[in-house]
Design a protein around this nucleic acid. Structure first.
Lengths: 255, 255
DNA sequence: AGAAGGACCAGTGGTCCGTA
DNA sequence: AGAAGGACCAGTGGTCCGTA
């Protein structure tokens, strides 16, 4: 059997807010034999200001009978959204109702751990074994209590995580620069494309190869927009080098 | 641009019937620039006994506007099915309204060529590039005129092709034995599982690794049943070796 | 009966857009 | 305004079962 390392609590080091008021998920009795069904997990959930709820819940990590995902335990709280991200420097803890970028990147590491769990279960059972973070993995993460992980969010920032993996220094510099300039997360996110396209250009414009060469990145699908930017920039580079020596920046508008 | 090598005519060497009366597909002007749309292809189609039809058709290989796939050219013939396979020895041409196993395996090679075409187009356009024979490839094959290729058929016999790739000698012997015994295709197909499970057992029971190690096989999804048989046989082997030295054949019934 | 393949279906990758 | 994520949708892998 495998032990599920539920590290949702590591929020602590990454976001002040996260641990003060938000979805702190602890799983007691975290061992769980993949080959057997059943078992129990206990979810402690603190929402809103002070409410602390304890619920016993059937272990549903293996999928199957799933009832509505409304209030757990019959209480009545609005489902809280995650606090929005702000641009933070490396090591900086976000203050107020915000999450920092170290926390964002930590979510990608968590997904990787959930994928590894799903892979181990699949191997154990002789089933198809995913190589990427799929819907199945997001579903597993949710059932494991990591309700703060969801597909749209993770897909939205994949290329930011890619830069973090492939060129930590460049990623850190970009964060400092955008924080200093007081830019919002959206602007920082946009800015992450350009250095990635430059990296791809040095690898024959093959973004897939760039992703696959890095073990932590290989499990993520290449985002459509990054793929398109690399394609456009490649054509651009080919055209400008074959026509004249003058720089051709017509694709720059896309960033 | 790439040249589509349309080798549907190579039926000739593989099946007497196939070339006498059946879907002989010739593409004139087979060059086609992947980067551009449009263009024309000409399909010459001989169906039934003697009818020969010529039709001009918009090139639809790139997908897009697809009208109904009924009669081409407005004629009225029942859509002929492929002749059923019979167990043939290596090199043997099937007689009568039958297709032989060399022809079956040839279809897998054709699918590989269609996949390569699809991959080249995707790379050219900077789109996601399939590594396996996907729905997209089957659609492409159909539009290229290879209407005798379809997904259910190809998936049905994948493991037979796998044996052919991985152990040609064993595959050939099996064909000779089953032909001699007068067995039908279904029986031969069933018999192909066992030697494959034996091969997997020598590779740590990892069928996926076995498929991926062979370049022509790696493009095919591992069939569910083969995966299950390997899993069962692995558990079986583990159980019998850990309990006693006596052979445990309780999974044999699955073959 | 044995076999070929149209067509269906549950669950996927992808992301929009109603929400806060 | 900027951002998080429920929920939708087109096209997938998988194969059943009405057909010949």
């Amino acid at each position: 059997g495998d032990t599920i390392a539920m590290d949702a609590l590591s929020h602590e080091e990454l976001s002040e807010e996260a641990v003060q008021q938000e979805k702190e998920v602890a799983v007691s009795g975290g061992t769980w034999d993949a080959a057997v069904g059943g078992g129990k997990k206990k979810i402690r959930r603190r929402t809103g200001k002070k409410k602390v709820i304890e619920v016993d819940q059937e272990n549903e990590l293996e999928g199957g009978d799933d009832d509505e995902n409304g209030d757990i335990g019959g209480g009545c709280y609005e489902r809280q959204r995650e606090h929005p991200f702000i641009v933070t420097e490396p090591g900086e803890v976000a203050r107020g109702k915000k999450n920092g970028l170290d926390y964002l990147f930590h979510l990608y590491e968590q997904c990787r751990e959930f994928l590894i769990q799903v892979q181990n279960i699949a191997k154990e059972r002789g089933e198809k074994c995913p190589t990427k973070v799929t819907n199945q993995v997001f579903r597993y993460a949710k059932k494991a209590g990591a309700s703060y992980i969801n597909k749209p969010k993770m897909r939205h920032y994949v290329h930011c995580y890619a830069l973090h993996c492939l060129d930590g220094d460049a990623s850190n510099e970009l964060r400092r620069a955008f924080k200093e300039r007081g830019e919002n997360v959206g602007a920082w996110r946009q800015a992450c494309y350009k250095p990635l396209v430059a990296i791809a250009s040095h690898q024959g414009w093959d973004v897939d190869a760039v992703f696959n060469a890095h073990p932590r990145l290989a499990i993520w699908y290449v985002p459509t927009k990054l793929r398109q930017l690399c394609h456009l920039e490649r054509n651009n580079a080919t055209a400008s080098s074959s026509v004249s020596g003058v720089a051709n920046n017509s694709a720059t508008c896309l960033y």
